[in-house]
Amino acid sequence: MTRVWDLAHGRSGDKGDVCNMGVIARSPEAWDVLLEKVTAERVKAHFGDMIKGTVTRYELPNIRALNFVCRGALDGGGTLSLRSDHLGKVMYTWLLRMELGDE
C-alpha cells in the first residue's frame, strides 16, 4: 500500500486555531500522484474529529508542494489547547501516514 510518506516529506505549524501542513513531492512522478490523490476532502476525512473546520489545499508547482490549511485544528488554538502537541508540530506526520490506495 502506498502512503503519502513514500512520495513526499513535510512540515506543519500553527497560526491561531489553524494548522497548516505542507507536503513536498520527492519526484515529478510523485507530484502527479499527490495532485490527483491527496485532496482536501481526503485529508479532512483522514483527520476525523481532530480537525473541526475546513481543509483548503494550495499548490506550489515549482517546488512540487501542496499546502493544506486546516481550520479549527488545534483545539481552540496553540495558546489555549490542552493537547501535548498544542502547536501542531507533528500533525504532518499523520498526513504522511495516509494510505493512497493502489487502484
Binding site: G10, R11, N20, G22, Y58, L60, A65
Partner: peptide, 14 residues
C-alpha cells in the same frame, strides 16, 4: 528540500 520545508511552514495561501 530543507528550504522547501521551511517555505511551507506556517503559510496559509501561498
Amino acid at each position: 528540500g530543507t528550504v522547501s520545508e521551511q517555505l511551507v511552514y506556517e503559510v496559509m495561501d501561498p
